[in-house]
Design a protein around this nucleic acid. Structure first.
Lengths: 241, 241
DNA sequence: CGGGTTGCATAACGATGTTGTGTTACCGAT
DNA sequence: ATCGGTAACACAACATCGTTATGCAACCCG
């Protein structure tokens, strides 16, 4: 659907202001860009295709965003917001270790759902000359605050030897991030497939920071049950795509 | 130095065969490409610059490699060979856990030394339309065999609860890979800088697979000493670039 | 109701990977 | 010895990329 022609028709009938920055076009561009990326990978995004998809010309990108990479930046920020939203689906319970494991599953779920965006967000893929700035990274670190809060509760529960929730949260992040990155890269195949590696990884990590193995196993199992309920994956895990 | 003109002079004086596939040109292209990538990042590699650097025309890329992405593929394979070589600098001792930790440091060292190539090797960066194939990934998995061997010795030493060296090696890989990826991405800043996260991560992992905390701490400390000796980092660690 | 300004379609520019075109030089057979 | 076949590759063209210039048309304000 060509946005521009629709808008032209609208402006002929209803009295509107098609001049002056139009948030509708801006939104249409962002949505079209996100669609192009998820459908055609990072290489699928181009000014021409974007303009065609949104029904405008390539100039719209520059009037609304200044450059292609600035548009990508907005999408990246949007991606972090989505990650944050995914984290918020994990509600605190009286088993903070299970909560933490579920946050790990949520991170993985979010990454696998938005594979290409994930690569851009964390500095891997170079997309249309986009490069992360420190401000962008702040968005990323901010989303980690959910994990830090959970780590604090883990420590308060007495199950962890750690006294620093920040380092604990980072360890969880690094472990899950590494798993997901290599999973998306296609490096985790049977017999060491991504599902198996993921379970081993979070289990070892919990034990590594002081939890008792049997308690960890119980909490990890609970987190898997909760994941099925909240995120509704058909086979109970994520699938290796 | 323009390779082509030199070759022309050589062929006028000494009797050589500048026609028929010339491995010298092939090598010159690969070396020039690697140089361009390390100097100018993934965006710094282009057929024109490559041709100028090697003193040939852009056609040389196609006669010797078929396409730009095939040339990248060769460089990726070269990168895996370099990683394997780095692993071999870690000699087995009677403290296999320290060996394993040192392998982790070696992985990180190699990644930080060849940052841009690292991103390409593990599926993050898209470079000149290059995409990993399963065969490429085999190169990556092969280099893991050094780690698996070490994991086997760790298990035999009785310090680990695990009975599967493969999953143990994978866990080490995932943990270190995640740390390094986010370090290169610029996400690990004080107070949770990369050095600190790395130490915490490998320590927690060893404990997580069954090692006793005090033994782990000792082995990790030994691995750091050995790293300083073998890899000769000035500040004893890697520096966060 | 006209000048200023703003949005943006069109077209152009430089650079990209890749593909024709043509020349040049080697090789092998006669 | 020489001549045709073939392989290498310099040069130029092509499509596409992000970006920038140009110009027109429409809103805003005086």
């Amino acid at each position: 659907m060509l946005y521009n022609t629709v808008m032209a028709m609208l402006c002929n009938t209803v009295q509107m202001s098609p001049r002056r920055h139009d948030p509708n076009i801006r939104l249409a561009l962002i949505e079209a860009a996100a669609r192009l990326i998820t459908e055609g990978g990072t290489a699928g995004l181009s000014t021409r295709r974007l303009a065609a998809e949104a029904g405008t010309s390539t100039m719209a990108v520059y009037t609304y965003f200044g450059s292609m990479s600035e548009l990508v930046r907005e999408i990246v920020h949007d991606g972090f917001a989505r990650l944050d939203h995914t984290f918020r689906l994990v509600e605190p319970t009286d088993d903070p270790v299970a909560d933490m494991a579920l946050l790990g599953r949520a991170y993985r779920y979010n990454a696998l759902t938005n594979r290409d965006m994930f690569g851009v967000m964390f500095g891997g893929s170079s997309l249309a000359g986009f490069a992360l700035t420190d401000e962008d990274r702040q968005y990323g670190r901010y989303t980690l605050s959910s994990v830090i809060k959970c780590a604090t509760r883990c420590i308060e529960s007495g199950r962890f030897r750690h006294d620093d929730a920040g380092i604990m949260a980072h360890q969880m992040w690094l472990a899950v991030h590494g798993t997901v990155t290599l999973e998306i890269g296609g490096y985790l195949a049977a017999p060491y497939d991504a599902d198996r590696c993921f379970e081993s990884q979070i289990t070892a990590l919990m034990i590594g920071v002081g939890d008792q193995p049997d308690l960890t196993n119980k909490s990890v199992a609970i987190s898997l049950e909760r994941f099925r309920i909240v995120f509704g994956s058909p086979d109970g895990q994520h699938g290796t795509g």
